[in-house]
Design a binder for these strands. Structure first.
Lengths: 347, 347
DNA sequence: TTGAAAGCGCTAACAG
DNA sequence: CTGTTAGCGCTTTCAA
């Protein structure tokens, strides 16, 4: 006997009134049970649940949203394409959202153009969401949106102005600094940087972390080469860098750029890590298995997603109370085989 | 002057009645304009649009869904974690869904357990979706669901029974066969296989493609080693395989396993591709930049997503008409540096 | 080409 | 602890 077997297969889907009738209670009581509200006798609760089950009842969220003004869903605008970083962050966001009892609506935009992001948020709002999370937006935030739900910016400061914005970082600055210091600690006189596209906040932040580390040690700051996250752009940067005889260490703002970079360096006859050390950024586990295994820093995606959603749900549900602050996400350097002390002497 | 400047910032959001009043028409006419229905004078249309714009009007989708019974959104249950394949497919699905004018609701499940999938579909249905797409489910499909919306299985045959199911493949069998034949064509006497977890349909399909290629050439079929898609499992398989002196060619069911495999082979003193050739599966562009660059087959994710959504939208909107069939997705072998003819003679 | 009336299925507010 | 009464903002008849 499948659920709902008592009725014709083509009969309309059961409504809460049907459940109420079968359970012998009012619709409101059914509503109470379904929403886990207090003040329902155990007996009534039991009967309602049994009736709902027997009927194969499924709550109509559109009706609930219309009546309550709340949709119980969170919209996320995901940036970028299928990179490991973005995808991994998205997975963790989804998980955190679901754990919090919300549904997820998603829009992906290939680039981080603020107008595009604003358009995506607009679309999400129209579809009805209780909050919005913007994952890793770009830096320039001149757009202003009329948004009355809370907005979380993950991995960046607010990319546009709205009534209630939150922002949770992924410690990019600190991670970049850690990566650079690792190289400096190894004895390299300075560290070159292959940056991400400077329209992205994440790219800018990493660059600044690198710059800060250099400054703190009084190391010379070589010119930056800007890539676009792709391995191709890392390769191009590597060709350029390979001609510099003083080059001994490079920090790339992304693992994939680092991979391209290493390839170019080797094609140019520079050994990694014997001649040149390379550190990446992201922490994709697969790069532990390439030659040489990539030293990198791991982004605390999970911690950031959980913390961000925690704050967001708090803003939705208890906007007037304060939220206990969370501990900072861990900063993790993964030392593998692409880094080593600089060659004995050069030139 | 920002939109809606005429009203107090805290006033309730404008409704279609407000637009109607300002435009001097009835609510139904507003509805007609907003839904691009015929039988509206240009003049009325213009006035409605102007009024909506002036008020900063945003249609309430919950109300529309309640009244019309259609949500204009498609639910997707995404399988697996942040791998390149899954993420890339998801991005293309999102794009195709949005292009079709639908919103996307997403649930991610880490494994492909049919019960989990069924639960995810149930959740999606409750949230209200006009159709469901299940991305790359596992093979065993004993679950039966009472689903009245169309369901698309992408990359696999139906994983559960429902009223209206569609299925669009990603040519995995053919791709696996092509990969294997490439190795055979190079002169390898046979090809070993590192498979994906056999609970996954995609893994089984690739294994069968490999098997078919071998059978067609009358090549001996060596025992299969089963991995779990991770580079670690590829490495473990590589350690095992490296002890076989007859080994000259391996087809791995995923790029990441291939990377782990190559690493193990080299750790064991077998050169790639001089001693052993390796082909992967997926087509992640970054592996063009590792050493050796990985020969692989590219999955037609975009073509599959577009075609699947096309069929799905057709099933939603015109369930009674036939849909012109689409051409098969392209099968693409990407030959890079990890494959070569077998060594002159062995043993 | 347009409008009036009647719900869609649920929850909110209030009364028992 | 439980029920009653009104809507939520839109689309759907159906009539003009």
């Amino acid at each position: 006997m499948t659920p709902g077997a008592g009725r014709n297969a083509d009969s309309p889907a059961p409504r809460s009134a049907d459940v109420a009738r079968l359970a012998g209670v009012s619709r409101k009581t059914v509503s109470r049970v379904l929403n886990n509200e207090p003040y329902v006798s155990d007996e009534a609760r039991r009967r309602v649940l049994a009736a709902a089950d027997e009927l194969g009842y499924r709550l109509n969220h559109a009706a609930r949203a219309l009546a309550s003004g709340r949709t119980h869903s969170i919209g996320v605008v995901a940036l970028g394409t299928a990179g490991y970083g973005t995808a991994s962050l998205l997975v963790h966001i989804e998980h955190a959202v679901r754990d919090a009892g919300y549904a997820l609506r998603m829009i992906n935009t290939p680039d981080g153009d603020p107008k595009r992001i604003a358009g995506a948020v607009e679309t999400l709002l129209e579809q009805g969401v209780d909050a919005v999370v913007v994952s890793e937006p770009v830096v320039e935030g001149e757009v202003s949106l009329r948004v009355d739900v809370p907005v979380l910016f993950l991995g960046a400061p607010p990319a546009f102005t709205a009534a209630r914005t939150l922002s949770v970082g992924v410690a990019a600055h600190q991670l970049a600094r850690t990566a650079t210091e690792h190289l400096l600690d190894l004895g390299h006189p300075t560290v070159h940087h292959v940056a991400g596209p400077q329209g992205w906040y994440a790219a800018k932040d990493r660059l600044e972390g690198w710059r800060a580390a250099l400054a703190a040690r009084g190391a010379h700051e070589p010119p930056v080469i800007e890539g676009d996250w792709s391995p191709e752009s890392g390769y191009a940067a590597g060709r350029e860098l390979a001609s510099d005889p003083d080059l001994t260490a490079v920090f790339a703002a992304g693992d994939e750029m680092a991979i391209g970079l290493i390839h170019a360096l080797r094609d140019a006859g520079r050994r990694v890590p014997e001649d040149v050390s390379v550190v990446g950024f992201d922490g994709n586990p697969v790069f532990a298995y390439v030659t040489p295994p990539l030293t990198t820093v791991r982004q605390p995606f999970q911690a950031a997603a959980r913390e961000g959603i925690r704050q967001l749900v708090h803003a939705i549900e208890k906007p007037d109370t304060d939220l206990p602050p969370a501990s900072d996400p861990p900063v993790e350097l993964v030392v593998r085989g692409s880094t080593a002390p600089p060659p004995p002497h050069q030139g």
